[in-house]
Design a protein around this nucleic acid. Structure first.
Lengths: 170, 170
DNA sequence: CTGACTGTTTCGTGACTGTGAAGCAATGAC
DNA sequence: GTCATTGCTTCACAGTCACGAAACAGTCAG
């Protein structure tokens, strides 16, 4: 993953688009422009003119933050912990593999066959096992605002839910 | 809460201390100094000379990120005293080593094997000893609002509790 | 001795996984 | 329109295993 360099205010729209996808980005601010308000943890800015060293330092910092948290886009760490926003859930082995496959093609359709191969590399069990695991996975990740959509006779698709109102239960 | 302004590299020690406590900080970098590597989400830097507007913008951004998380991180003294907020507890040797390992990877999963190696560098005792010590550790640190979560078949994870309602009884 | 720390044994509970079957909903044949 | 087919959803159940928890015993410091 790389950090997108966005000229500000010239490429304002591009910044919005990147933010919507949770892509990390560095805003390059014109010398006489006011400092922008950052919208999330995966954004930073630097005032022009800036040295390549400074720009790289900020890009690295953004990526380091990306690793620690997650953006709009959920992140699955190798321990089977799925993080999205400030929340996380742990996934059991099979579900972690299924989700990894969905995450590889985040926002795109993954066929049932491909999913089954990811979930059970040594060979799939009964035909229904996949259905049940998708059901369980859905319920498990719902609190994170992540949704598995069905594309009938094609497969499944992972995306962010639109109910962004998450209430902390105290 | 306010963001501490730390001159770099002059106040290097102060920065370390602030970071250990999870305090937000802005590094003010001398003009000819290389860009620093940020240690967490609650830190940022700006190259001098900088306008007050730019500095304020970065401070606001840090605070916005701070709000998104609950940052306060417990600290373990070399004496085996664990502090979090205004409270503290003392930990016996084995538990202190276990907690140190969890704290090293605060918020991330630590495997049972890794924990056992930290707790008993000379070789682990019986298989269940770890379970029991985790249980005791949990009860000991609960009053501080620090929680050890289980990630089944993967390990344990240290984080701050989400129950923000802490009633002071004494 | 007393109490804190440590480790072991034992048992219970809950999590993970897979299976079978019932229920819905979209699709297509007639 | 009606009906059957197909594909997905959901529930209920059982086997296995990891972890939680209590009770007990040994060691050591004060």
């Amino acid at each position: 993953m790389d950090v997108a360099r966005v000229f500000w205010p010239k490429e304002q729209d591009r910044r919005t688009a990147l933010a919507a996808q949770g892509m990390p980005r560095l805003l390059l601010i014109d010398a006489d422009e006011a400092a922008p308000t950052l919208v999330d943890c995966f954004e930073d800015w630097v005032r022009l003119p800036a040295s390549e060293g400074d720009i790289n330092a900020r890009c690295s910092a953004i990526l380091a933050r990306t690793a620690g948290h997650s953006s709009e886009r959920p992140v699955l760490d190798p321990d089977g912990v799925l993080r999205c926003g400030s929340e996380w859930v742990s996934l059991p082995p099979v579900e972690a593999r299924l989700l990894a496959a969905l995450l590889d093609r985040f926002g795109a359709v993954v066929s049932r066959d491909a999913l089954a191969r990811s979930g059970w590399p040594a060979g799939a069990p009964g035909r229904n096992a996949l259905d049940v695991h998708v059901l369980r996975l859905r319920r498990r990740i719902a609190p994170l605002g992540v949704v598995i959509k069905t594309v009938r006779s094609r497969g499944y698709l992972l995306e962010r839910g639109h109910a962004l109102l998450v209430v902390e239960s105290a």
